[in-house]
Amino acid sequence: MVVVLREITDDNRDSVLELHVSPGQERFVSSVRGSLREAAEYPHAKPWYRAVYADGEPVGFVMLSWNVEPRPPEIHGPWFLWKLLVDERHQGRGHGFEVVRQIAELVAAEGATELLTSYVPEDGGPAGFYERLGFVPTGESDPDGEVLMRLALPWTPAGRLPA
C-alpha cells in the first residue's frame, strides 16, 4: 500500500468531497466539505490540508494548523492535527496510521517538537487510535469538551499497528 498526500485541485475535488465516515462516526469528525468550510472561516489558523490517496485512489482527508501562533481556546498549535478522515470503505487498513506517520515527519522537518490533536470523549471515538499512536492527554480540554492530546516528536512508530 502506497499512501500519498495530494493537494486538492479541480481535478480531484469532487471525488474527495464524496469521502465520508460511517453515520456513527459523524459526531467525531466533520465532512470534507465542512472541513474546507472551516478552513475558509479560520484562515488565521493557517489551515494546511490534503487528500489522502492509497494506491492511486482517494481514501481520506487530513487538515492541520500549520505552524500557527497558538491562541487558546480557539487555536491550538503551533502544529495541530485538526481533521483526520478515512472513508468508511477504507478504514482498518492502516491508512490513518500512515497519514499520522507522514504528518509527524513533515512537521518535525519544519522544526516541530510536538503534534497536537483533540478528540470527542465518547464511546466509539478515536481516543484509542490516537493512544496507540503514542498521543497522550495534555490534561486540557477545549471549550467544546474535546480532550487535547500531544505526540512528542521526532516520532518513530514501533511498527505497524494491529487493525
Rank of each mutant, 00 (worst) to 15 (best):
W66Q: 06
K83L: 05
L115G: 09
T138R: 10
E110L: 03
D144L: 14
L133F: 03
R101I: 03
E140N: 12
W48N: 04
P137V: 09
M149D: 03
L161E: 15
E105C: 00
G139H: 04
N12K: 02
E74W: 10
T117S: 15
G94C: 09
P78N: 12
D142I: 15
E18H: 07
A127G: 10
K46M: 02
H90C: 11
V4D: 15
K83H: 15
V52A: 05
A54D: 03
V99N: 14
F129H: 12
Q25H: 11
E122S: 06
V107Y: 13
S118D: 14
R27T: 07
T117M: 07
N67Y: 00
M149C: 10
M1F: 08
A39M: 04
V136F: 04
A104Q: 11
F28V: 08
D10M: 12
K83T: 09
E74C: 11
R150G: 12
L19C: 08
I8A: 05
L64Q: 05
M149G: 06
P126M: 11
V16A: 07
G92D: 11
R101G: 05
V2Q: 15
D144N: 14
D87Q: 02
A112D: 07
W79G: 04
G92N: 11
G24I: 04
V100M: 08
G94P: 07
R160H: 06
S118K: 09
H44K: 09
G34M: 02
V4C: 00
T9A: 08
P72D: 10
V52L: 01
V21I: 07
A40D: 12
Y119K: 07
L115F: 02
I75H: 10
N67M: 03
W79Y: 15
E122C: 02
P43D: 04
V4M: 12
L133G: 06
E74P: 06
G139M: 13
T156N: 12
V120R: 15
P143T: 12
L116I: 07
G60Q: 01
V3A: 08
P121G: 03
V62G: 03
E69A: 06
P47N: 02
L133P: 04
G139T: 04
E88C: 13
S141W: 05
A112L: 10
L5Y: 08
G56L: 01
I8T: 07
G111M: 07
R13I: 00
D10G: 15
D14W: 03
L153W: 11
M63V: 05
E105N: 11
L5M: 13
Y130S: 05
R89P: 04
A45M: 03
T156C: 02
E88Y: 11
V32I: 03
Y49P: 00
D55C: 06
D14S: 08
A45W: 11
G34P: 00
P73Y: 04
T9Y: 12
L148V: 14
G111I: 00
D144P: 03
R13G: 00
G125F: 08
D87L: 06
E122W: 10
Y119L: 12
G128Q: 12
E74A: 15
H76C: 05
Q25W: 01
F135H: 08
P157L: 08
K83E: 14
R132L: 14
I8G: 05
F80S: 06
G134N: 10
